[in-house]
Amino acid sequence: MEASATADEPTPTRRDFLFIATGAVGVVGAGAAVWPLIDQMNPDATTLAAASTEVDIGNIAEGQIVTIKWRGKPVFISHRTQAEIEAARAVPIDELPDPATDQSRTQKPEWLIVIGICTHLGCVPLGNDGPFQGGYFCPCHGSVYDASGRIRQGPAPKNLAVPPYAFDGDAKVKIG
């Protein structure tokens, strides 16, 4: 439309303006109509509302790692032994591929809570497996995590992620 109008007359005229304005309004409307199409695929209200999970941790024995489901993903709750805590805290930070202190990754030294998704390509690592005591080993591509869930060997680029959580007394933790 615009093209045929400008072909006749080189300078913009009122007619050009009308065609351009109509075209612009049409484009804006089409653009606005696209947003609901995109947004409908975002997490819905039920998914967002069920974002927190309460876990009873009173029964988890020392040295035991349990897996619970949060937002559809596995979360490891590890009740670490004194030896595991000490080993995790003794590592020099600058030797790590993704440097982080064990203190920064835990709220209470005996509890490590991490999302059980390998940061390589999303497989679930095995707990209490691999070369580190109380550590994790991903069977898919051989990534090795220590008892603090930090990446030590293998293709994964980052440490296991720590979800937001809060202790409710000694026996309960709320994740999310």
Partner: peptide, 13 residues
Amino acid sequence: EHIMRDVNYGWLF
């Protein structure tokens, strides 16, 4: 009803 209440713009579609 899930579409009508919870899905983003679900009521619209």
